[in-house]
Design a protein around this nucleic acid. Structure first.
Length: 535
RNA sequence: GCCCUCGUAGCUCAAACGGAUAGAGCACCGGAUUUCUAAUCCGGGGGUUGAGGGUUCGAGUCCCUCCGAGGGUACCA
């Protein structure tokens, strides 16, 4: 249970109702505050009739009975907010618990052991991964790490669309490149893939004298996607192939179910899905092939059949309308659509030399994720993607990312960790520093504003993680880390950790910076970013 | 045309069920260091949150209209 939950519960016991608590922005306003005096429920539940929020707040404060070993002081501030100051001794006690929790600090069981499957990237196996795939990869991967840390059984999955029209176009495009190597004149088919990478694949095919263009091309591209992801620090628990869902007869079953529900009709030689409104969607094309939607419904039915409590899909904005179609199809097949949560990861617009770069695999113009990782590094790339909330449009300026790489927020955070590592290394040779268990009394030597700010900041960490998990939003973590690193650097400028003439304070400060380092390590690992000892 | 997402400082982005004075980084200006890592710290300027209306004790956040950007728009995935 984190501190906020604890305070909320104590207030509930005292007042009889649930109140909302927020972390205050300004330390002058205490540690937490509540707006309960503004709410209507307070008047009915407590029988307070006074109309002035300030008077209501004062009344509430007089009713509150909070243990003094936990809460130091309660005040009414502003227009009627009630502010709480935590008892310092309690802070120190909570802090000793952190030291004991170690790497588990911040973890929780809010997921209640629920099984979650997070599907992301899932790009067509027709070319290399591009920048926006990197955004989805970073967010999806981090989300899985956060969910695991907060008590979910989370798995990641990549859906490979290795069937359908785009694969045929890929095969034809490779064949065209192959004929070019034979000295013939060949054109990439309309809607095909003119990118340079297919030339390489055609060369390899020619060199090993292979005939299976399609299979070789797919395998080669999928492998290169896996290589890129590995370089990016992203690994998937499952790779699921569309061909498997087709082999199992899934799409046919979907069609049957939809027909039984009388949600399908024929028109223009195609089979259509009846949608609410007039946005009907093709299920079987007039050439007899399944449209993409059908195997995708079958795939999601397969996911449901694997007994997950929650399915999370990360989609690009081009799939927004697909969500309704998918859900309509799924409910026609009798599955629990409310267990499916879709998160939209917006496009990344690449800016190079002040110009926006078009991103189209079909036009052959794109910047690969590989290039970006090589240019600016894995850690910086991941951080850039993770510090934005996923639904925001994002401009990624390559020159800026490279230029800033020396004064980058990532390095700012990593540097704080490295500085601590350096101090700890130096301290390790001192006597009587690391051997004895630290106590609350020892920690109470930490009383400068900088130290108390750090302690409070660290104690907030579990709440940040919980928030990120509940909202499925990793981006709260980098912002928290920036603030924590700022507090640490500030502390570092003002105070020395190792004081030759004050061993007790040295010990206390070492425990403090160890905790800072621990939190940095945990948070960075949740983002899939390294925490170097030296920089 | 219709539908979805977005619009916050010069630039890139935050802001917890609607809460107190809308915050960071970059850029710009000024200052700090014989110190455990200067990839650091402190200070400053910079805002009618695209525009207008509404809801209420209170709106960047919710509702309506308009403007702008991106995406989708029926047999690509």
């Amino acid at each position: 249970m984190n501190i906020k939950q604890k305070l909320r519960e104590i207030i509930k016991n005292s007042l009889g109702i649930e109140v909302e608590l927020t972390e205050t922005k300004d330390p002058k306003l205490g540690d937490y505050s509540t707006n309960v005096a503004f709410t209507s429920q307070i008047k009915s539940v407590c029988g307070i009739k006074n109309n002035s929020p300030i008077k209501v707040a004062e009344d509430v404060v007089s009713r509150l009975k909070l243990p003094s070993e936990f809460i130091d002081c309660i005040e009414v501030g502003g227009a009627g907010f009630i502010n709480f100051w935590l008892n310092k001794k309690f802070l120190y006690e909570a802090f000793t618990n952190i030291l004991e929790e170690g790497e588990k600090f911040g973890s929780s069981n809010i997921g209640n052991n629920k099984r979650v499957l997070v599907e992301f990237v899932s790009t067509n196996p027709t070319g290399p991964l591009v920048v926006v795939n990197g955004r989805a990869a970073a967010i999806g991967d981090s989300l899985v790490r956060i969910l695991k840390f907060t008590g979910y059984q989370a798995e990641s999955e990549y859906y490979v669309d290795n069937c359908g029209k785009q694969v045929k176009l890929l095969e034809e495009s490779i064949r065209a490149r192959y004929r070019e190597l034979e000295g013939e004149k060949a054109e990439i088919p309309e809607g095909g893939y003119p990118g340079e990478y297919l030339k390489e694949i055609a060369k390899e095919i020619k060199k090993s004298n292979l005939q299976n263009f399609r299979e070789y091309g797919l395998n080669s591209i999928i492998q290169s996607q896996k290589d890129t992801l590995e370089k990016f620090g992203v690994s998937f628990d499952n790779w699921f192939y569309e061909s498997d869902i087709r082999k199992s007869g899934g799409p046919e079953k979907v069609i049957d179910s939809i027909k039984k529900k009388e949600l399908a009709y024929k028109k223009d030689g195609a089979l259509w899905l009846k949608m609410p409104g007039d946005k009907d969607k093709v299920l079987i094309k007039s050439d007899g092939e399944f449209a993409y939607l059908v195997p995708d419904i079958a795939y999601h039915l397969n996911k449901f059949s694997r007994n997950y409590d929650l399915l999370i899909d990360l989609f690009g904005p081009d799939h927004i309308s697909h969500i309704d179609e998918l859900k309509t199809g799924l409910s026609a097949c009798g599955s629990q659509v409310d267990k499916l949560k879709v998160i939209i990861v917006q496009w990344v617009t690449l800016v190079r030399e002040g110009k926006k770069i078009g991103m189209s695999k079909r036009k052959g113009e794109f910047v690969t994720l590989d290039e970006v990782i090589n240019d600016v590094g894995k850690d910086v790339t991941r951080f850039f993607f993770l510090m934005r909330k996923c639904e925001s449009h994002l401009d990624f300026n390559i020159e800026l990312a490279k230029r800033e790489s020396k004064e980058n927020p990532v390095f700012y955070i990593q540097y704080a960790g490295a500085r601590i590592a350096s101090i700890l290394k130096r301290a390790s040779s001192l006597d009587g520093i690391n051997t004895i268990q630290i106590s609350v009394q020892d920690l109470s030597l930490l009383k400068t504003p900088e130290e108390l700010l750090l302690i409070r900041k660290i104690l907030h960490f579990p709440e940040i993680i919980e928030h990120a998990s509940l909202e499925f939003s990793p981006h709260y973590i980098p912002f928290y880390l920036l603030s924590l690193a700022n507090f640490f650097h500030n502390f570092y400028e003002k105070h020395r950790v190792i004081l030759d003439d004050d061993i007790p304070l040295t010990r206390a400060r070492i425990e403090l910076i160890k905790a800072v380092r621990q939190v940095i390590k945990i948070a960075l690992s949740l983002m899939g970013i390294s925490a170097p000892e030296k920089m």
